[in-house]
């Protein structure tokens, strides 16, 4: 790891100030990706601004169907939150399968979506839920927020402070984990509100998380795994790598969508 300068932010405003006064600073949430990237010298920020001790970035609130998760909330906290599980079990299920128990004690929802790894779980959840990403300066719809592989709509000096969404009528998440890394080789989150179904796919796209419209249309007619019999997804914009070909991932998208719907119907 190259040299860096560590700063501990006391508030979001303080973090923004520290970030702006640094040469090439980065915000440090749980660090489960950033520290590993720094160790391999894939990242070399001049300054790290630690958000882990910022009180205003902690906590989950559930009021009826309205859910707000502060950006610094860890995966373990999301996974174990009883009230959230009653409102939207699938998001807890998703969080409980990120990495491993030790990673889930440090990694945060804000860190995950600020990084927008193409195989991370939360981007699929938030896109399918039609969530709103709240920052220190504005609110961004998930549809506009995830702009590509490791790319988001965040501007310089902008900090994710929370995500919020209205719990859908039914939702489910299924992922086929890479057997080595446990990142999603393909993960599919489905959410139904009345007759509207949103389906988001992570791990498979060539340019990060995306909505699978063919699957959405099939499920809008009948929210049942059987509605996906014979439905196929084009492999054109999917990823091919040593782990799986685009064709294999295209098949997995449909299989995982079926499992996600089955999970949603519980």
């Amino acid at each position: 790891m190259y040299q860096t300068n560590y700063h501990r932010a006391s508030s979001v405003d303080d973090a923004v100030k520290l970030l702006k006064s640094s040469d090439d600073g980065k915000l440090l949430a749980g660090g489960m990706t950033l520290i590993a990237a720094m160790k391999t010298r894939l990242a070399a920020p001049s300054d790290l601004i630690d958000l882990r001790h910022v009180g205003e970035l902690k906590g989950i609130s559930v009021a009826g169907k309205e859910v707000t998760i502060a950006a610094g909330t860890t995966h373990a906290e999301v996974a174990a939150h009883g009230e959230l599980a009653r409102a939207c079990h699938a998001i807890c299920h998703l969080a409980s399968h990120i990495g491993d128990p030790h990673v889930r004690h440090m990694g945060t929802i804000g860190g995950s979506i600020a990084n927008n790894d193409p195989a991370a779980d939360y981007p699929a959840g938030l896109l399918a839920l039609g969530a709103t990403i709240v920052t220190n300066s504005r609110e961004i719809a998930a549809d506009d927020y995830f702009t590509g592989m490791f790319e988001t709509a965040l501007e310089e000096g902008e900090v994710v402070t929370a995500v919020k969404f209205t719990a859908p009528d039914q939702c489910g998440y299924a992922k086929f984990p890479n057997p080595a890394s446990r990142y999603a080789l393909t993960g599919v989150f489905v959410a139904r509100r009345g007759g509207e179904v949103r389906v988001a796919v992570t791990g498979a796209g060539d340019d990060g998380v995306f909505r699978a419209t063919a699957i959405e249309e099939a499920l809008a007619g009948s929210f049942d795994p059987s509605a996906l019999e014979g439905v196929s997804v084009s492999a054109d914009d999917l990823m091919s790598d040593i782990h799986a070909s685009a064709d294999y991932r295209a098949n997995l998208v449909v299989v995982m969508a079926k499992r996600a719907v089955a999970a949603a119907k519980g």
């Binding site: 560590y6 440090l28 030790h102």
Partner: peptide, 24 residues
């Protein structure tokens, strides 16, 4: 960050001590 040989408890929770800074 994969093998877990470095796990310690930080404020009562298991974490990987190779994946965080001493300053953190």
């Amino acid at each position: 960050s994969q093998c877990g040989a470095c796990v310690v408890h930080l404020d009562g929770k298991a974490v990987k001590s190779c994946s965080m800074l001493a300053a953190q």
